[in-house]
Simulated scan of single mutants.
Amino acid sequence: MDEELQQHLEQLRREHEEKIFFLQHHLGAEIHWFFSQGAEALRQGLILPACISFIIGIESSVRVTMAQIDKPAPISELDPKIILNNKLLISARAAGLPVEKLAFPGEADFIEKLESTGPKKINVEIVRVRHNLCHGNILEYINKELGESNKFFTPECCLNLAMQLLIVSKAWVEELSKFRKAMQNA
C-alpha cells in the first residue's frame, strides 16, 4: 500500500474514533447525544453550540445518574429544581461519582471551591461557566486586545473554552462510564 493511501486510511480511522468516542461509553441516549453533538458542532466550527452541548451533557449526566441512584428504576422525569451547581456536585461526590474529573485544566483548587460555603462560596469552574453561558453572559469572552473602543465578540472568542469543555467532557465520560458500569453490576 502506498504511503499516501496509508495516511488517508489513518486519518479516516482517527476521524471515526473521534465521532464515536462519546457513543461507545454506553451512557444512554439521554446523555451521550449532548456530548456527541457538542463534538460534532466543534468539528463544524459551531463554537457556541459546542460549548452549550458539552455543558448540558455534563449537567444531564450528573442529574440522570443521581436520579438513578436515588430510584433504581427507569427515569421518566427529572426534578426541574435540581440543576448543575456546587450542591449537586457535593451530593454526587458523596454518592461516589468521580466529580473531580469535572475540574478544568489547571483548576487545582476544584475540591476547595466545591466545599466552600457561606459568603466565601466559590463555584467550581464548570458551574460558573454553566451559569454564565446558559444565561447569555459572554462578557468575559469579549476580545479587548484592540483597546476599549474596539472590543468585540465573535464565537471564536470562546474557542479556548470549547476546547477545555471537550477535554473535561472526555475525561468525565470515561470515568462516569466506569462508575455506571460498577453501579449496574452492584
Rank of each mutant, 00 (worst) to 15 (best):
M1P: 09
E3Q: 10
E4S: 11
L5W: 07
Q6C: 08
Q7C: 05
H8K: 09
H8G: 10
L9C: 04
E10W: 02
E10Y: 04
E10C: 01
L12F: 06
E15K: 00
H16Q: 14
H16M: 14
E17M: 09
E18K: 04
K19C: 11
I20G: 00
F21C: 03
L23P: 01
H25P: 01
H25N: 10
H26E: 13
L27A: 07
I31Q: 05
I31H: 02
I31P: 02
W33C: 05
F34W: 15
S36C: 11
S36G: 10
S36N: 11
S36P: 01
G38N: 09
E40P: 00
E40I: 07
E40T: 01
L42N: 05
R43W: 15
R43M: 13
R43F: 15
G45K: 03
G45S: 12
P49S: 10
C51L: 10
S53P: 00
F54G: 01
I55N: 00
I55K: 06
I56R: 12
G57V: 06
S61H: 11
V62C: 09
V62E: 05
R63P: 02
M66H: 06
M66C: 09
A67P: 06
I69S: 03
D70H: 13
A73F: 11
A73S: 12
P74V: 01
P74G: 10
P74A: 12
I75K: 15
S76W: 15
S76R: 13
E77I: 07
K81I: 04
I82F: 06
I82N: 03
I82Q: 02
I83G: 04
I83H: 14
N85W: 06
N85E: 12
N85K: 14
N86L: 06
N86Y: 06
K87E: 13
K87C: 00
I90D: 01
S91M: 05
S91G: 05
A95C: 10
G96I: 13
P98C: 06
L102I: 00
F104L: 07
P105S: 11
P105Q: 08
G106E: 14
A108L: 10
E112S: 09
E112F: 07
L114R: 02
P119E: 15
K120W: 13
K121T: 05
I122W: 00
E125L: 10
I126R: 14
V127W: 11
R128W: 13
V129E: 11
R130N: 14
H131V: 03
H131F: 06
L133K: 02
L133Q: 05
C134K: 03
G136F: 11
G136A: 10
N137F: 03
N137R: 03
E140N: 08
Y141A: 08
E145T: 01
E145P: 00
E145H: 06
L146C: 02
E148H: 01
S149I: 05
F152G: 01
T154A: 04
T154E: 15
P155T: 01
P155W: 12
E156T: 01
E156S: 05
C157W: 14
C157H: 09
C158L: 13
L159S: 11
M163Y: 11
Q164S: 08
L165W: 07
L165K: 12
V168C: 08
V168M: 09
S169I: 03
K170V: 02
K170W: 08
V173N: 04
L176K: 03
S177I: 03
K178C: 04
R180L: 01
A182K: 14
Q184A: 14
N185G: 03
A186M: 12
